[in-house]
């Protein structure tokens, strides 16, 4: 039995929602009742069956609609996908990683047949059936990175590793939390993290870079990051700020449950074999407050996290405007009782 793909939108009428089973598998990012930055990186090992960590690259019920949304973003703004000339080999590395993984994890939806350099790829949910020569860009309709990431949920940054640093030299970024690939392209690890408050003082980035430079083939790593988004909009880019920024003024006590979304990024890190580059997939998961509150533990904990969040972080994450309304709404679910340890919904 395959995944039942939902037909939904992430713009205009915002028909996105999670089925009850998907609510239960949401990657809730708080293991305790408060939040502060930490180098929360761990090995990307397979998680429990049915969880978003079961397979190396999760495909879920939003797959088809997310890919349609990506195509719309790229049609309006082709600069959301860029690859500097020396990154083509890394693009082939990524194509191999994703095709092999998707075909192994979801054989009912994807099939890859390799005969030497001649590869045959079938993507049933998107109706794609292509034969191409691995390594020969002229045999694909797009460059290798763009071709495969138009068929894979989440943003992808490919980081070149040289001079003891990582360089944002390729990527496809259409589901981002207010950052721009076109702005960051060519920057190094410290340059593109410059706007993040507090973490520099804690030496987080120096330690994180040291870790990332040593991520080895066959040993991917992962971390969760989070923010909040008003309306289930995947494309909250600086380029489109005029479209989504004003949404933050529309939150009222009546519409919090439907409008306010917790946005969680599952970030993974993979060494690519031919190019020795690092690929950094950023997979975005959205959940409405109404959906989240079906777990009493999650609602209670989120209330405490948002209420106690340091001001700098609330500002950086863009919550300032509607934080009081949200905290008030969540407080209805908080009886002051103890929450169980761990991420699960209970």
């Amino acid at each position: 039995m395959g995944i039942q793909f939902r037909k939904e939108t992430f713009r205009d009428d915002f028909s996105f929602k999670n089925s009850p089973e998907h609510v239960r598998r949401f990657p809730f990012p708080f293991h305790e009742d408060s939040y502060m930055y930490a180098v929360n990186i761990e090995p990307h090992k397979p998680g429990p069956k049915g969880s978003v960590l079961e397979f190396p690259f999760d495909v879920d019920e939003h797959y088809v609609s997310e890919m349609e949304d990506r195509a719309l973003v790229l049609a309006e703004d082709p600069l959301r996908c860029q690859s500097l000339p020396h990154m083509t080999l890394a693009g082939w590395d990524l194509l191999e990683l994703l095709m092999v993984s998707m075909a192994e994890s979801y054989p009912e939806h994807f099939t890859l047949t390799r005969d030497g350099d001649t590869w045959h790829w079938i993507n049933r949910p998107l109706g794609i059936d292509d034969t191409f020569v691995f390594g020969d860009t002229s045999t694909l309709p797009y460059g290798p990175m763009e071709y495969i990431t138009r068929q894979s949920q989440g943003d992808y940054c490919i980081l070149d590793q040289r001079d003891g640093n990582l360089w944002m030299d390729a990527g496809i970024v259409t589901t981002q939390a207010d950052w721009s690939l076109d702005f960051d392209i060519g920057m190094n690890f410290f340059e593109w993290h410059a706007p993040v408050p507090l973490a520099h003082e804690k030496g987080i980035f120096t330690r994180a870079l040291k870790f990332l430079l040593n991520v080895q083939q066959g040993q991917p790593a992962r971390r969760l990051n989070w923010t909040m988004t008003i309306n289930p909009r995947l494309d909250t880019s600086p380029e489109n700020y005029h479209k989504w920024g004003p949404d933050r003024t529309t939150v009222t006590p009546e519409n919090v449950g439907d409008k306010v979304h917790l946005r969680v990024e599952l970030q993974t890190f993979w060494r690519l074999p031919r190019s020795n580059a690092l690929v950094f997939p950023i997979r975005c998961y959205l959940i409405k407050m109404d959906e989240l509150a079906t777990s009493p533990k999650w609602a209670k904990r989120l209330h405490r996290v948002i209420r106690d969040l340091p001001e700098e972080l609330a500002t950086y994450k863009g919550l300032t405007r509607y934080r009081p309304t949200l905290v008030e709404w969540l407080s209805k679910y908080d009886d002051g009782g103890v929450t169980s340890p761990g991420f699960g919904p209970d």
Binding site: P85, H86, M87, D160, Q216, Q217, G218, N276
Partner: peptide
């Protein structure tokens, strides 16, 4: 071990 590259080509 898995291969580790500490002497990689600069593809630029």
């Amino acid at each position: 071990s898995y291969p580790v590259n500490l002497f990689s080509l600069d593809l630029r």
